[in-house]
Amino acid sequence: MAEVASVPAGYRLLLPSDWLQIPLRQGTTAEIERAVAAEVFARAPGDVPRDKLTPLRLEVERRLRAVVADAHRTNALEIYLPVRLAGERNLGASIVVSEARLPSRSAADGPDVVVTDPVEVAARLLSKTPGTGVDLSSGEVDGALAVRRDQVMAADPGRGAEMDSRRVDYLVSVPGEPGLWFMAAFSTIGGGDPRDDLAEALVEWFDALMATFRWSWA
């Protein structure tokens, strides 16, 4: 990869119109939930009866509360959720975007040292022995080194995850910012089984989505 002197100002993804972006750095959790609920129900078709919207609103708010609270715990930057209010099945899926500096080398006589070389970080991630069913691979996303991780996560009711889920993470080195990594974490329950045909199709969709990822520059 060519050396990059400047740092990107952000990123772009070509998301379908029925996915909603939820920024997490603007307001409290309650304010975010209210703003998102208002946006979701502003999209409701005019012929949907109010008595059908009420339980749907409660379900959306429940899901939002769990997802936003979990994202705040991990210092996420934004969440993307699918929104359907026309009687179609709402996908149990989400994308959480965050950034992190990944310590990957333990000093012999001290704490972990942050490795700034993306190639070394990627090599160390890939060399770690994965757990059962974890798939690791590497490549590039818009010219930046990236590591892709695919695994099944066990249910965790304490964090709002009532069922096992399929999770695919993309860790992308940020150009011009040694040691900083962009992270996009896709999660889905599929049709109730994280390895079923729906889950596989959604993972393929997320991989295609990440192929549209582009850095944005000031």
Rank of each mutant, 00 (worst) to 15 (best):
G160T: 04
V113Y: 09
P49H: 08
D164F: 09
G143C: 01
P175M: 05
S165M: 14
V174C: 09
R214H: 02
M1T: 09
S98E: 09
V121E: 04
L180M: 13
S17K: 02
G10K: 05
A86E: 14
K128V: 14
W215Q: 01
A5Y: 00
F186N: 05
Q21N: 06
S216F: 08
G110L: 08
V203T: 12
T54A: 07
E31G: 08
T188I: 07
L202C: 08
R12E: 00
Q26C: 09
R195H: 03
A86H: 10
R105Q: 15
R43W: 00
S187G: 13
D193R: 06
V36K: 06
D207N: 07
Y11N: 03
G110V: 07
E177C: 08
L85A: 05
T212V: 01
F182K: 11
S137P: 02
A44H: 05
L180P: 04
L56G: 11
A66G: 03
L102S: 06
S17G: 04
E204L: 12
L145H: 02
V203C: 10
T132Q: 14
E162A: 13
L171Q: 14
A100H: 10
S94T: 15
S216I: 13
V68G: 05
A9M: 02
V174D: 06
R43V: 02
E33R: 13
L81A: 12
A35Q: 13
S173D: 13
D169S: 12
V172A: 09
